[in-house]
Nucleic acid binder design. Structure first.
Lengths: 157, 157
DNA sequence: ATAATATTGTTGTAAATGCAACATATTTTT
DNA sequence: AAAAATATGTTGCATTTACAACAATATTAT
């Protein structure tokens, strides 16, 4: 019977910490890129806008669940996007309840497209040394990882 | 000549966003675990303590570079760890300059060991459905990903 | 029917975070 | 030798963030 060598005694050697560090670094890089390219959105606003664009008519709380922010901050991000004219919000009902739904505007779609074009090439250059297969595999593993996390996390959104 | 199908038009489909989301969720899970187990350290303090334990005699700025926090917050985290008696700080020189170096105390080592034992099993249960090979592969890919990021990021620590 | 609970969004607040400015000391440049 | 630049740590502040409390409405329980 083989016993696994228990060499990863340190938290800093765990996949949890590796993920944390990589993500932190990546956020830094992307934020710096946004400033360099003079993109008038924060990274979070961009992610929210992109999420709205593929989830037309979503309500705020559901969006909050998707972008993993609480309702308060989701509302604030949407305030900013609305004020910039990239989304429209309208009152509607969901399960007989009044909710604030939203959609992306023409201008928002155009802006999203512009940012995508600006950013995409740059971000891909970061992963150029990594094979498509590896990228694919990491994304798949992360997805199943995320599913496991969702099972144990308490979400109070 | 094959042309790649360009189907990943959305940022939210990119590995960058997937990483961000997984990391955010994981942080939530770990923080909740720390509270449930009544661990008297924040996640950041834990990571810092672990880093100090394997880098005896490191100075503050070098530690900041390792944990990817700025000098200000690194100092604050260390204040807390010192106040709790888990590290000791002492003035020394590095390249002829006065620096604050640090080391983990007996008590800190004991605490770290306790937390490691408490946390390890729980965190591993999250990845139990993922094969060791996949975990290994993800960690390797993330590492090369991180190297690429380090090439392009501007670090002003 | 009335009370208790649940859903959705907003406001307030305390903590975390990053950045710039500062103090101090050393090295490099002129 | 004087001035400029660099390295290290701390302090202050403005932004971000999460969490709790609230308001309004609808559903469920008693």
């Amino acid at each position: 019977m083989k016993t696994k060598p228990d060499c990863k005694l340190h938290y800093t050697d765990s996949i949890h910490y590796e993920l944390e560090q990589t993500s932190r670094l990546m956020k830094k890089v992307t934020t710096q890129l946004f400033e360099k390219l003079e993109i008038g959105l924060s990274l979070d606003e961009y992610a929210a806008l992109d999420t709205v664009s593929v989830n037309a008519g979503i309500c705020q709380r559901d969006l909050a669940r998707l972008i993993l922010k609480d309702r308060a901050n989701t509302g604030r991000i949407l305030d900013s996007l609305e004020q910039k004219g990239f989304i429209t919000r309208f009152i509607d009902t969901k399960n007989n309840r009044l909710v604030k739904k939203m959609g992306i505007t023409e201008r928002g779609l155009k802006e999203l497209d512009t940012i995508n074009k600006k950013v995409k090439q740059y971000l891909e250059s970061v992963t150029k040394t990594i094979s498509d297969e590896d990228i694919e595999r990491v994304q798949e593993t992360l997805k199943s990882f995320r599913l496991e996390l969702e099972k144990v996390v308490e979400i109070n959104i």
